[in-house]
């Protein structure tokens, strides 16, 4: 198992340059860690539209249907006529399904977040505390035919502040 190399950058343009160059040199297993959300970093990581939106849509639709179904089922299980209204009463049941649309939509978006992001992940991974403050860090993993020295050189040239060998698997 090859070691991973982790580099810390002080400037985000250096960091992005390094990442782009590594990509261009054929290093595919890189992960970028930033203290703030950065669109450029996401682009380099090849992320465009997140599948989370599917979870939201499906959850919302299911929620809406299940809301109406729940209200109808509850009204039919034990028929209690009230106020001269119909048993399956559309206007109030639509309010219920509106709320359920949102409730299930939110919950399934949450589920989607956990599935897509891979969190919670409490196992030990390459990480430096400075990343949550003001450093941008890059972790490069190597395939057997990759040259770790080349990656290190690219990062150093780009202006890496610190380069560390890490044993932990990404």
């Amino acid at each position: 198992m090859a070691k991973n190399i982790m580099a810390l950058f002080q400037y985000q343009d250096d960091f992005l340059n390094a990442a782009r160059k590594l990509k261009a040199s054929g290093f595919d297993r890189i992960s970028l860690m930033t203290p703030i959300p950065m669109h450029d970093a996401e682009k380099i990581a090849g992320l465009d539209k997140s599948p989370v939106r599917r979870f939201s849509l499906i959850g919302a639709i299911l929620g809406g249907l299940s809301g109406f179904a729940m209200a109808t089922a509850c009204a039919l299980v034990f028929i209690l006529p009230t106020g001269g209204r119909a048993i399956i009463t559309f206007p109030p049941f639509l309010v219920i399904s509106y709320e359920m649309t949102i409730l299930i939509g939110v919950l399934s978006t949450l589920l989607g977040f956990h599935i897509v992001s891979g969190l919670p992940a409490w196992r030990d991974k390459p990480y430096r505390m400075e990343t949550s403050i003001d450093r941008f860090s890059l972790v490069v993993g190597f395939d057997p035919d990759d040259d770790p020295a080349l990656a290190e050189k690219i990062m150093r040239d780009a202006g890496a502040e610190k380069i560390i060998q890490v044993e932990k698997p990404e």
């Binding site: 009204a75 039919l76 028929i79 006529p81 001269g84 209204r85 119909a86 048993i87 399956i88």
Partner: peptide
Amino acid sequence: KLKQYLKPGYY
């Protein structure tokens, strides 16, 4: 039955 449930006036 459904017709009855969907329409008020059963009273």
